Simulated assay, not measured.
Amino acid sequence: MTKIALVFPGQGSQIVGMGRELADARPVTAEAFRQADAAIGYNLSQIMWEGPQETLSLTYNAQPAILTASIALYRALLQDHPEFEFVCTAGHSLGEYTALVAADALSFEDAVRLVNARGRFMNEAVPAGQGAMSAVIGMERALLAEICERVSAEHGPVELANVNCPGQIVISGKAEAVAHAGEVISAEGGRAKALVVSGPFHSSLMAPAADRLAEELKTIEIRDAKVPVIANATAGVVQGAEEIREALVRQVVAPVLWEDSVRLMLDQFGVEAFLEVGSSSVLAGLNRKIHKGVPTHFFKDLETLAKVETALKGESTHA
């Protein structure tokens, strides 16, 4: 049997209509959307299916929407393949919460409420316009970290936020500092592109959001995970309830170490294929740049569900 790692995408993969086809076709999937609406206290599914995109993309809507779509898809997968097993799981930023639901460390309803609150906390942590993020292409991590340290000393914090794959890193911090870092990056032969985001996520400026999330997490039951979960902030395994709680707080201010997480899953667990479950295939693209020899199958609708059969049968063709 192929050793499969189950992975879930994060914010940015939201799109109007996500999950609707499956909800119409599968009662088990439709139930996930009803549960999310009830947990969050408003009609999230209507926003997901009818938009507008601007409303769906608000951080406190996008985060529970992406989680809900991923879990709905995952339930459809389990309905067709109750024998499906994975050796470990991980998610990119917000996707870590989805991974914890799949690992039975968090209930789905609690996770929906948590990421809605997380989105609000992150949105309110820094006044609009004071923070920024940029994607950096074509620069080594060590050099970029040194540039960020140098710029931070003069212009305020700018830090690595997402270490996605070789040659693709996101920086985050004070708007002025991110802009100055972009100039230095260009001079050093890299390329920085400003991202359209509502705040400097995964930076030390998110400390107020982390503090509020820590208080929120005290009200939530967290169980020991049934399978190993790879934490974004450390690219290490978490499985006990308390270490999961600590990892979720730390994740708000720490970089998402996706490249390191993928390498850990390959090296420590001997992963032979990844299965991405969500409304996009963004992680499949990143994973190919990290290790071309290990396939990432993805499942985002009824059409791609059929293609996932190859992963479950242990074949190595790409979805």
Rank of each mutant, 00 (worst) to 15 (best):
A5V: 02
V7W: 01
F8Q: 05
P9L: 05
P27K: 07
V28Y: 01
A36C: 14
D37I: 09
M48C: 13
E50C: 14
E54W: 00
L56N: 05
T59R: 02
Y60F: 13
Y60I: 03
A65E: 00
L67A: 04
L67V: 13
A69G: 08
A76P: 08
D80L: 11
E85D: 07
G95K: 06
E96H: 10
A103P: 03
A111K: 00
N116I: 06
F121K: 01
N123K: 15
Q130C: 11
G131V: 00
I137P: 06
M139P: 08
E149R: 13
H155K: 13
A161H: 02
C165A: 15
V170Q: 07
A175T: 10
A175N: 09
H180Q: 14
E183V: 13
A187L: 14
A187W: 02
G189C: 08
K193C: 15
A194W: 11
M206S: 04
I220V: 15
D224R: 00
A225P: 00
I230R: 03
I230A: 04
G240Q: 14
G240C: 09
E242C: 05
R245I: 01
A254S: 15
E259A: 11
L275G: 03
L283F: 04
H291L: 12
E303R: 15
V308Y: 01
V308I: 14
A311E: 04
E315F: 13
A319L: 09
